[in-house]
Simulated assay, not measured.
Amino acid sequence: MVPADDALFDAPGPRGRRRIAVATAGSLLVMAALTWAGLHQFAVNGQLDAGKWRLFTQWPVIHYLLQGLWQTVRVTLVSGAIALPFGALLSLARLSRSRLVRAPAALYVEVMRAVPLLLLIYVFLFGLPGAGLRLPLFWQLAWPIVLNNAAVFAEIFRSAVRALPTGQTEAGHALGLGHWLTMRKIVLPQAVRQSAPSLISQLIRLLKDSTLGYVVSFLELLNSAKTLGEYNHTVVQGYLVVGFIYVLVNVALASAAGQVERRVTGRPPRSG
């Protein structure tokens, strides 16, 4: 069988490979130059002094940042646990044969996908207290993330269902199964399997959405670094340390997502 990449693109010839090598080398040189320029600028302004970094080797500071990391993970897990099934229900409503069910679900999905997450957070921060409803800081951040991402999950589920061959549904009906039984027994399991990579990617994005916690003064990881940096005059160092932590967490999540994707879809690990 011809690999997917070879089927879509012709392999480059000798001249094409030379151009790719030259472009790669040039890009690496530019990145190295920019990195050196940034480090040099930090050194000139005293940002690389050991005293400014020694703070992050002290256990109270490490413990403080670990608490912020836990709050980030907690928001991500809780929001995902609510948004994922909510999005599945919305997708089923959009696929309903009844217009009374389908139209409100479609309106919700389109509106929530169009409204910026930051605006939703402001609604929970300023709008609800004005109406006499005040939520804890955690839920002022979590509920906007849930409402926004549920609409995205709904479209991922619906697109996966629409991508399935119509013969799957027709086969269920031929066996005497009703619409919802066909969806539950035949269509949805295949749709979940096909949409697994997109669902996992969106779940990882929830981690990045949690960085808006500063709006409601919720001390997730990024806001914890900001508070710590302003108090100790190490804002640059704090952001760099936290950025490195985010990279490690996202790499770990991406690796776990790849394992789940291979288990669900049955694809072999990629080589190279």
Rank of each mutant, 00 (worst) to 15 (best):
L125C: 08
P3E: 08
T234C: 12
L141D: 14
E155K: 13
V22T: 14
L141G: 09
V75T: 08
R54C: 02
H233R: 05
T169C: 09
F126M: 13
V152L: 00
L66S: 03
P269H: 05
M183C: 00
V242R: 08
E110D: 15
Q67F: 05
W59F: 09
L55S: 03
L65Q: 02
I82G: 02
E170W: 00
K208Y: 00
A163D: 05
A7Y: 07
A93L: 13
A160T: 14
L65A: 06
A191H: 06
L175G: 10
T227S: 05
N250W: 13
V249M: 07
L66H: 08
Y64M: 02
W53D: 13
A150C: 04
S255V: 12
N250T: 15
A83H: 01
A252S: 05
M31L: 14
A174G: 15
D5H: 15
L164I: 04
S210L: 07
A43Q: 13
R15D: 00
Q237E: 03
V161M: 07
F9N: 09
T234H: 05
L141T: 14
L90C: 11
A106F: 09
V22E: 02
V216D: 02
H40S: 15
A21P: 12
Y108S: 04
L100T: 14
K208T: 11
W36Y: 00
F218S: 11
A106P: 05
P104I: 10
A256D: 14
G16A: 06
L89D: 08
I145M: 14
T72N: 12
T227L: 06
I82Y: 02
G238E: 06
L95T: 09
G266N: 12
T265W: 02
L133K: 10
Q67N: 03
G172E: 05
V241E: 10
L135C: 11
